[in-house]
Amino acid sequence: MDSDYSMKEIVIISGKGGTGKTSIVASLATLAGKKVLADCDVDAADLHLVLEPEVLSRNDFSGGKKARILKEECTACGKCIDACRFEAIHYPPVASRTVHALPQINPTFCEGCGVCVRVCQDNAIAFEPAVNGQWFISDTRYGPMVHARLGIAEGNSGKLVSLIRAEARKIAERDELEFIIVDGSPGIGCPVISSITGADMVVVVTEPTLSGQHDLDRVAQLTSHFQIPTTACINKWDLNPEMTRQIEARLKDQGIQSIGRIRYDPAVTRAQIMKSSVVEYTGGAISEDIRSVWRNIIYALGYFINK
């Protein structure tokens, strides 16, 4: 192992939504040493609400192209309508039709495949990079943060997640930081896969509910497929202690290291309202739970052993 510089990327995901990923990430941001934060929940980014980033650079994100009909050239032959597999091109509704009604492309459904552009014999479809959102490099009270805002109803979230992680890595390398802490998204699909591939560790935040357990099982299969070291903590564990024990037993069977329990505390919501992380907001027992989770993450990374 390289002893002088070895940066670790930790990704917090959950399978099920709303288990407390972002609240926990905000607290880890408070606790971790030299780090960069990456909000990869680009669909519903919330980390900025707590960390109040000061934006240093603002950039457009283009995840692909979109087709646009050029009215002067279009002869309304309709070939594009038949060719589009995504049903993104239609004639306007009959009521609003003029005599020479031209097809219309709905940008929300256009996947940017370019098939319509190629079948059009009149060169009447423009095909240009679409701006799908914006991404930012910011400064927070806990160090640099890379985050993004995906445009309303835009796709390509997987590409944006990859971009945010790459930019966070650049900052970590430039500043010789110890950690990249990534706030991931719920589910097991495209943005989640983009956020975990090649990471040093995944932390799954789950809750003691049947849904939490079911969703944890699926996300565990995903991280196991990609062979990413996986740990899990149970948030609001005292909501159902029996279920907590059941999930912990299951984690053991799945070879996932359990890194702690975090109790239910209304202070989590109050901290959010005060734009604070939980460990900033309260010295109560819940903060000790979260500190313990962070110590266990470090331990699981073998961080102390390498030092």
Binding site: G18, D43, L49, A153, G155, P186
Partner: peptide, 27 residues
């Protein structure tokens, strides 16, 4: 599904009505 991108749009686009669920917090 949660969120606002492609899978959500695919789920709701043909609906007559959408009920948006939230909780009274900043997030």
């Amino acid at each position: 599904p949660p969120g606002t991108s492609c899978p959500v749009i695919e789920s709701v686009k043909d609906a007559d009505f959408v009920l948006l669920v939230t909780e009274p917090t900043p997030f």
